[in-house]
Design a protein around this nucleic acid. Structure first.
Lengths: 335, 335
DNA sequence: AGCTAATTGTTTGAGCGTTACCATAGACAT
DNA sequence: ATGTCTATGGTAACGCTCAAACAATTAGCT
């Protein structure tokens, strides 16, 4: 890499002159500025990032910790985060916690040595289950900003971006109730997660509020070890009269639809399905799955925006929680 | 952040003593070493990454440039790369080219200022279409190592990790021929990509070699603007007698299967399907889709391994191209 | 005992590539 | 002379490491 020193030597001026010239300093003569810039361009000079960071104590880099990139929601969030960060002149260092507390801890630790200006993260499952947030508090105590998205923790004092999981689920369930459904099932593979609980409660609330709904709520939990398809097969075996399904993740709604069609359920006449899904699954469904759109791009964007704001006025201002609107998109699997 | 200087002041020794003590230098007395380490631990000292990098001219960071994270193959590759990099003590800065030459160029440029020790990348579609590799050569000329995976460029002199696209497609087609299929279609949404061409040619070769196969090859190209579902509907309309399908991407095989089943095709009795798919789509298929497994985890791992090798012996050794084995996995959509 | 020589433990200083601040040299005006 | 520009150079600092210098002790030798 070409350095200021090399430019200075070739031009027979001092390093500081070169530095100033490249910054268009008033102190330097037009002529010198031009000579310096020409050579710099010619030699393809780029200021060394590490030296800059060392000097300024800013890295222009964000640490992004994602529980699972193979989950479409997080892949899309990463996509949105990368886009917005790039737009704002930041790079992202991506770490995957793989839902493990240990990996999350390690990433946080390893990057808190001046590698990044702040962290954007969604909390790993294990971390939420064990409710162990010390590693995150530790980062906050070091005055490194953290913005949480989607899976957040109540008691962490930092910026957050969430959706109204409770409300979205409540609304979707209400819709099924309005259709007159009497046996509505809630399927979830994220029962222990904050968002999972909220979605479940939204469903529950809607059902409990409905005076005409006489049946008990039905919760189907997909455990880590469970085979989604088997669980859903079992569901239809044990609950032949199910006529509404709310799925709290991207895939189980689709699988439920497939299984139901195979069993001869008439969708949406006899059975309605709504999934917390992205449109990447639509091509696999017929009729097209009705979904709760999470506006993942907006989530990612808002996350980065909050972070940058925070970085630009580190101290002051109270922490903010931004709620991104969801949207119930009715397609072919609902009436 | 705590610095050596702060430790030194508190302990009344010089900065270099502290530095050496933390490195267990022989020169420092046991006693001092212990005192230093205790305080360091107590104050949670972490060496400043930027200072280290500036000094050593190593960042322990890799730039990873991915064409599209929403594509499951790349998400999985990213996953594998992150895992292996972390294992080897490297961080990754992730950039998404979104299939654009301009974005790819920019990422390469921005990170080549000492931000990373090397680049791992799969080439953007636009870059391959325009066959413009100058930005990558430029990086190589700067002596920054690059490892390409999956989508590579013949004439770039660097390490590469690929699969035998031609062979895999050839083998899969052969299988369909062995089943006695007479109207085999090749569906692709990556026709302009190096890998797309190879897969197509593998299919073609197998068909041409088969003396008993009398029909013309049938190529279905999914363009950027096309609606996959519409194109596949059209396929079945215009080629009612299709009895074999090779799909060169993760989703079109699945969609083809759905459409075919809906139209009443008997799978696999009357129609066989093989996709270049990962197992994430299996839950959406019934019978289960037969696939060419690309061993994406191995690809990612090999990529990082090649990179680390290269970094550890920068000069010397000729560049290597590693071919990861594929595997034809026959499930329910083939006989 | 009295000297050098080796050993031990520490400090000094330079340098990685930058930038910010301060200093200085020369030209010119007062 | 003194002051005021203009254009440039020098130095320190960011946090770290490494080579070299140094001081203080200990060992070795006559």
């Amino acid at each position: 890499m070409v350095t200021l020193k090399q430019l200075a030597e070739q031009l027979n001026v001092s390093v500081s002159t070169v530095s100033k010239a490249l910054h268009n300093s008033e102190e330097i003569s037009k002529d010198t500025i031009q000579r310096v810039k020409e050579l710099a361009k010619h030699l393809n000079y780029q200021p060394n990032r590490m030296a800059l960071s060392l000097k300024s104590n800013k890295t222009k880099t964000l640490g992004v910790i994602i529980p699972n990139v193979l989950n479409h929601f997080f892949a899309k969030a990463l996509y949105a985060i990368e886009m917005e960060a790039t737009k704002q002149g930041y790079n992202i260092i991506t770490c995957l916690s793989n839902e493990l507390l240990s990996k999350e801890k390690e990433s946080l630790l390893l990057l808190s040595n001046g590698s990044v200006d702040g962290f954007i993260m969604s909390i790993a499952e294990e971390t939420q289950v064990e409710n162990n947030m010390e590693h995150i508090s530790a980062i906050l105590n070091k005055d490194i900003p953290v913005v949480l998205f989607d899976r957040v923790a109540e008691d962490l004092d930092c910026d957050k971006v969430i959706i109204d999981d409770f409300g979205a689920s409540y609304e979707a369930t209400k819709h099924l109730l309005k259709e007159g459904r009497k046996h509505i099932v809630h399927i979830s593979d994220i029962d222990e997660l904050s968002v999972g609980k909220l979605r479940k409660n939204g469903y529950l609330k809607a059902i409990e509020e409905d005076a005409n709904y006489k049946n008990d709520p039905i919760f189907i939990n997909i455990g880590k070890e469970d085979d989604l398809e088997v669980v859903i097969d079992d569901l239809f075996k044990s609950h032949k009269n199910v006529d509404g399904i709310i799925s709290s993740d991207n895939t189980s709604g689709v699988v439920a639809q497939h299984k139901a069609l195979k069993l001869g359920y008439n969708i949406p006449e006899k059975l309605s399905i709504i999934g917390f899904s992205d449109d990447n699954v639509l091509a696999f469904t017929d009729p097209k799955l009705s979904t709760i759109s999470q506006h993942t791009m907006d989530i990612g964007k808002a996350t980065v925006e909050l972070m940058i704001e925070r970085l630009n006025q580190k101290n002051s201002t109270k922490h903010e929680t931004k709620t991104i609107k969801t949207k119930l998109i009715l397609r072919g699997t609902t009436k």
